[in-house]
């Protein structure tokens, strides 16, 4: 039945998945071209010292991309479920309700993590042809919160979307915005390195939140 639930999510989201994958995959040649282009203009040694001296991060254009991906993915997964309350169909399946929701969330977060992970690794190893690990390591230390924000945004978007009462939806949205803001407080490369446990905590918590709204949906809470 896990396969059936994954199948449903796959049919629903495959084109979006393809699009997100393409954006992330496409970013790799973009970053490499951008880097080699700068190398050509400034010369490698000079550009290296610029990167180190000015704390330059050439993959910083990635900052809000995982966030957007998580947001769009979460909304695309749940909005169809909320149209005409068709989530009732899903909850009526002869399968434990919490597990059904959990599996839907696992499908979403799993595919996001896969896309982030695979494209991130490919980017890391491709960059390591041109740059020393000290620089790439620093860049990815800075990028980790961006990816984690994407994951948190996914769960929070699902939470806001499932919530049946509009007033509560608004409150949840504000809370979600505040939580997401925490991921983008970094000013320099390493400034967020001690915040990782906080981010992991936020992700684990925000994974629980959608269940609260599912409970409320199930109870038929209304204004």
């Amino acid at each position: 039945m896990t396969r059936a639930i994954f199948y449903k999510e796959w049919i629903k989201l495959r084109w979006l998945l393809l699009a997100i994958s393409l954006v992330f995959a496409g970013s790799i040649p973009y970053f490499i071209l951008n880097l080699t282009n700068k190398f050509r203009f400034a010369g490698k040694p000079h550009f290296w010292s610029v990167i180190v001296g000015k704390d330059l991060n050439l993959i910083s254009e990635l900052t809000y991309i995982p966030l957007l991906a998580g947001l769009i993915f979460g909304l695309s997964q749940i909005v169809p479920e909320m149209q005409k309350k068709s989530l009732k169909l899903t909850l009526h399946l002869p399968h434990p309700e919490k597990l059904t929701i959990l599996k839907m969330l696992l499908f979403g977060s799993g595919t996001l993590v896969s896309i982030f992970g695979i494209t991130g690794l490919v980017l890391y190893f491709t960059l390591s042809i041109y740059l020393p690990l000290q620089i790439i390591g620093a860049w990815f230390t800075a990028a980790l919160p961006w990816y984690l924000a994407g994951l948190a945004a996914y769960f929070l978007a699902v939470w806001v979307c499932i919530e049946p009462v509009w007033k509560q939806k608004a409150i949840n949205t504000l809370l979600a915005i505040a939580l997401i803001m925490l991921f983008f407080k970094g000013a320099s490369t390493y400034s967020l390195q001690y915040a990782t446990p906080l981010y992991i905590g936020i992700i684990l918590l925000s994974m629980c939140f959608p269940f609260y709204s599912v409970f409320r949906f199930k109870e038929g809470v209304q204004q």
């Binding site: 449903k8 049919i11 169809p80 149209q83 005409k84 068709s86 009732k88 169909l89």
Partner: peptide, 13 residues
């Protein structure tokens, strides 16, 4: 067997 108001079904299938 449950038929929801408006014959709602997963419309992306």
């Amino acid at each position: 067997g449950l038929l929801l108001e408006g014959h709602v079904q997963h419309s992306y299938f």
